[in-house]
């Protein structure tokens, strides 16, 4: 049985899709058979970030509607063994997702895969609801600023009350991932500190991904940033994946160097 992980945030633009791609790729690099599913029906993105947009023939909605078999829609990654993408439809909307259909597809994937990463759309409507509903674990992505923290908090509350786990009296295992963390702006007080965010969200910290030009460069060429193992963001995601798999790796809080560069990383435990 696969472990179903939802990557969610409430707010848009915080880095859910980048994170989904990075985590799925990172898990596959560690030998886990992984599929990443795009729940953002109508705003298809994960295939771009994964660099497989030209290879999409059938999609998640086709499978839900029974127009295609799962194996026809799954796209195998060309770089990483064990990595698959289930893209979504660009022409439909979120109403095309049915709860039964999602459950059936997840059930079928569970037979074959170790991890299923669900890339949630922004918002708290149908797409986001179904992305988290069947999850075993959640990676809550937030930027260090108030509105994204507030929306993440709302999403955490929904997962704690409206998910299938919650209905069964259990709870989704939730992790906090801070993205687009800019130590310079944190120092200036323009961004929230890690402790401030953690105090409000009260979740264990899975990782901190610094604001990094490599993220944009990687998406432009359709490569999950975790494959750029020289970049700060790539390293941060590699650590994130390790912790997600239960390894005891310290969270690195990005710090400013003496010349105002991210050239020095201080290690500290979260």
């Amino acid at each position: 049985m696969a472990k179903i992980i939802v990557v969610t945030s409430g707010k848009g633009g915080v880095g859910k899709t980048t994170t989904s791609a990075a985590i799925a790729t990172g898990l596959a690099l560690r030998g886990q058979k992984t599929v990443v599913i795009d729940f953002d029906v109508g705003l298809r993105n994960i295939d771009l970030i994964m660099g497989c947009e030209r290879r999409v023939v059938f999609d998640f909605i086709n499978v839900i509607n029974g127009d295609a078999k799962l194996h026809q829609a799954l796209i195998k990654d060309k770089r990483v063994e064990n990595l698959f993408v289930l893209p979504t439809s660009q022409t439909r909307d979120k109403d095309a997702l049915s709860q039964d259909g999602v459950e059936r597809v997840l059930g079928e994937l569970s037979q074959d895969f170790d991890y299923i990463v669900c890339d949630s759309p922004a918002g708290i409507e149908r797409g986001a609801f179904l992305a988290m509903y069947f999850a075993d674990a959640a990676v809550v992505v937030s930027n260090p600023e108030v509105s994204s923290v507030r929306d993440a908090d709302r999403m955490i509350g929904l997962m704690a009350s409206k998910s299938r786990k919650a209905e069964q009296g259990a709870s989704i295992e939730m992790h906090l991932l801070l993205t687009r963390y800019d130590p310079e702006r944190v120092e200036k007080g323009e961004m929230l500190r890690v402790e401030d965010v953690q105090e409000i969200l009260a979740l264990p910290l899975l990782g901190i991904v610094p604001e990094c030009p490599s993220v944009l460069q990687a998406s432009n060429v359709g490569m999950p940033v975790v494959l750029d193992d020289k970049s700060l963001a790539g390293k941060a995601y590699a650590g994130t994946v390790a912790r997600l798999m239960g390894e005891d790796v310290e969270v690195v809080v990005p710090r400013l160097g003496k010349r105002g560069l991210l050239d020095r990383l201080l290690r500290r435990s979260a």
Binding site: R150, D151, D153, R154, I156, G157, L158, A160, I200, A202
Partner: peptide, 27 residues
């Protein structure tokens, strides 16, 4: 005893409400 999150509403009819965890903005 769980954090009360943004958007959550908790009502104690006819009695007291005791929260042993933080309450978020918007709750």
């Amino acid at each position: 005893s769980q954090p009360v999150r943004s958007g959550q509403q908790i009502y104690a009819p006819q009695g007291d409400l005791i929260v042993t965890a933080p309450v978020s903005p918007g709750a």
